[in-house]
Amino acid sequence: MARSRDLRPGYSRRAQYGIFTAYVIAVGGVIIGLIALGISLLNPAAFGFLRGAASEISAPAGEASTATRRSGAGLVSAIEAWFETGHQNLELIHEIAGARAAAVSARATADENRRLKALLHIVDPAAPPVSAARLIGSTAASARRYAVIDAGDAHGVRAGQPVRGAAGLIGRVVETSRDTARILLVSDASNVVPVRRAGDGLPGFVQGTANGKIAIRLLSLGNNPLHPGDVFVTSGSGGIYPPGVPVAVVSQTRRDGAEGRLAADPAATDYVFVLPVYQAPAVAAMADAVKAAGPPPKDDN
């Protein structure tokens, strides 16, 4: 038999009691709520113990929620940092490369300034150099020893003029063009430089050898008074080279002299001075007298 669609309790006392109880509970709840609302408005502190109890009960849940939120934020930050790591590493690599390049440039500039200052210390105000130049090439493995500087005729450079660096004599000019000049190095076998020992003026001469080294020979015969470490400078004899310019240092003595090393290594020299051709005072005075006297008179006969 199908159930009747009429949902009214009818004569069922059980249903009627249930509905009545529900109404009583609802009305009682409304009355209690109104009373509680009135008490809370008139005396807000009356339910403080209930709020405190509720806070105590909900505290663990709040702590768990806070921990979860912090963990989530940390996880998000870690993920973002992981994705940003590659970009940051690339930026750091570029910054490090730039800093290294700047350091190398600064070191090169400091070395260049040091060499230029060393050159300035050797300038004689009474006999200023013809030109300052940069040594732009040299033959280190050839039987002939030449170098090239970036100063030529346009800078007043002429053949025969001596060339020196901060450490000592480099050679002399043999050929010139407009903006360059060719230097015959001291280590060339055809270049003979009159020298004297810096300590006592012992005379001699320096000549290059085929193997790129230099030989130091003395003008006086007899016992060899040379010792390793002796410094030889230009003597000024014969002109061309001014006196007092370091040329060679004795490295090993021989029966007739010594083998030495250059005071100024062209391979380690960047800047040089081209000096005027040196003339001894007596020769210079004689030349001045000849110029002052003028040309000799012509013979009418």
Rank of each mutant, 00 (worst) to 15 (best):
P281H: 04
A154Y: 07
A181M: 03
G236R: 05
H121K: 15
G29Y: 00
F83S: 10
E56V: 11
A46P: 00
A64R: 12
R14E: 14
D270V: 12
V186R: 00
V195R: 00
T85P: 01
A167H: 09
L75P: 01
I31Q: 06
L116K: 14
F273L: 14
V174N: 09
L275C: 05
G18D: 03
N301E: 09
H227W: 07
A36D: 10
P276K: 03
R107W: 09
L42C: 02
G74Q: 11
G52Y: 08
V206G: 02
G33F: 13
L92P: 03
H94T: 15
D124P: 11
R134A: 14
A159W: 04
P129F: 04
A78V: 06
I149A: 03
I39V: 15
G52M: 07
H227K: 12
V206C: 01
G201F: 03
S237H: 11
D200C: 08
P296F: 08
H155I: 02
A133H: 00
L34D: 00
A45K: 06
A59I: 04
Q16M: 09
T180F: 08
P162K: 01
L219Q: 06
I216G: 03
P9M: 11
F273G: 00
N43W: 09
R172I: 12
I79K: 08
G48F: 08
Y146N: 11
L75Q: 14
T85Q: 15
S58A: 11
V245E: 06
A73G: 11
V130P: 00
I122N: 00
A189R: 13
L218A: 01
I35Y: 08
P296C: 10
T269S: 12
A292V: 06
G137E: 07
G10E: 08
R69Y: 06
I136Q: 09
Y146V: 12
A280T: 06
G10T: 04
A26R: 06
Q16H: 10
P194M: 03
G171S: 12
V123D: 02
F49L: 11
